[in-house]
C-alpha cells in the first residue's frame, strides 16, 4: 500500500517537474512548480524528515513560488503576453 503511494508520488513528482520545465505558458509552469514543491514536501514526510517537509512547503514551494509569480506577473504587465514558448 505504502509502496504504491511512493510509486505514485514519485511519478507525480516527475510529471509536475516535467510540466514546470516544459509547459508552453510560463504562468502554468510556475503553478506546476508550486505543485511540485508541495509534492516534494510529501516525499520528505515519507522519508521521515518532517522538518524538511515543513521548510520545503513554506520556503521551497511558498516563498520561491511567490517570488516567481511576482516576476512572471511583472513580465506580463510590462510586455503583452510575451512569446515565452520553450524556445
Amino acid at each position: 500500500m505504502t509502496l504504491l503511494f511512493d510509486v505514485i508520488l514519485g511519478l507525480g513528482l516527475l510529471l509536475a517537474a516535467g510540466g514546470a520545465l516544459w509547459s508552453r505558458s510560463l504562468f502554468r509552469a510556475v503553478v506546476l512548480f508550486v505543485v511540485f514543491g508541495l509534492l516534494v514536501a510529501l516525499a520528505w514526510v515519507r522519508l521521515e524528515a518532517p522538518d524538511v517537509a515543513l521548510a520545503e512547503a513554506a520556503i521551497g514551494a511558498g516563498l520561491t513560488g511567490a517570488l516567481l509569480f511576482d516576476a512572471v506577473g511583472h513580465l506580463r504587465r510590462t510586455r503583452r503576453d510575451p512569446p515565452d514558448g520553450a524556445a
Binding site: D6, L21, L68
Partner: peptide, 30 residues
C-alpha cells in the same frame, strides 16, 4: 529511500536538459 533517490536522479537529469535547452532566465531558474 532508494526509490526517491532514483526519482531525484531523474529530476536532475530532466532539469539539466531544461537548463541547457531554455534561454528564458525564469525558466532556467525553475
Amino acid at each position: 529511500a532508494l526509490w526517491y533517490a532514483l526519482v531525484g536522479a531523474l529530476l536532475v537529469a530532466v532539469a539539466f536538459a531544461a537548463f541547457a535547452a531554455h534561454t528564458h532566465v525564469v525558466r532556467r531558474l525553475l
